[in-house]
């Protein structure tokens, strides 16, 4: 069991720091390679330590945590799907994360099909035989849950790494939240 009471790395938005103050010359952006260097090194170490399945779950959960904070601090509360998508598209584009599209929307039946082009995590990666954007899956899941109040399971079904040029995510409402 983890010692929850004495956690060292509990995340809060303030931990992102005051970039204007801290980086007056270099600014608030960095190169994509740096981001990927950190992400894929993390992935390597985590996989080696915990195995592939556990590493993927850790990335999904980290994405979920990031998505929850991202919704609260960047998107903001809204109940209109059109407005939510628009705000999310703008934020993802403005922060150079990716280009979001809604391919299919059937919230009445708890299903959404989203695509992200020029994805920060994977676009331009060598072809692999599997989808790699597990962090994005958790991130999108948290965004949808924060917006709708419903638990979503998000699965990437197409990825740059599988030869596609657009990452495609299928989001489905989970009847049993434990399964999410």
């Amino acid at each position: 069991m983890n010692d929850i009471a004495n956690r060292k790395y509990s995340f809060s938005w303030d931990l992102l720091g005051d970039l204007k103050k801290g980086r007056p010359n270099l600014g608030d952006t960095t190169r994509v390679e740096v981001y990927r260097l950190m992400q894929f090194c993390f992935r390597d170490v985590l996989e080696e330590t915990y195995g592939t399945e556990k590493a993927d779950k850790l990335f999904y959960d980290a994405g979920f945590l990031a998505g929850t904070h991202f919704y609260n601090h960047v998107i903001g509360k809204t109940t209109d799907l059109g407005e939510f998508v628009r705000k999310l598209q703008d934020a993802l584009r403005d922060m150079s994360i990716g280009v979001l599209r809604v391919e299919e929307e059937d919230l009445a039946h708890g299903r959404l099909l989203l695509t992200v082009s020029e994805d920060l995590d994977c676009s331009g990666l060598p072809e692999l035989s599997y989808e790699i954007c597990t962090y994005d899956e958790g991130f999108i899941s948290a965004l949808l849950e924060s917006f709708s109040g419903l638990k979503f399971r998000v699965k990437e079904i197409d990825c740059w790494c599988t030869g596609d040029r657009t990452c495609r995510f299928e989001a489905t409402v989970v009847a049993d939240p434990v399964a999410a």
């Binding site: 599209r101 809604v102 391919e103 299919e104 099909l113 695509t115 082009s117 197409d158 740059w160 030869g163 596609d164 040029r165 657009t166 495609r168």
Partner: peptide
């Protein structure tokens, strides 16, 4: 196929 699916995604969006 990926490029075509990208176009397809745009049209569906």
């Amino acid at each position: 196929a990926g490029a075509l699916k990208g176009l397809h995604a745009n049209l569906r969006h």
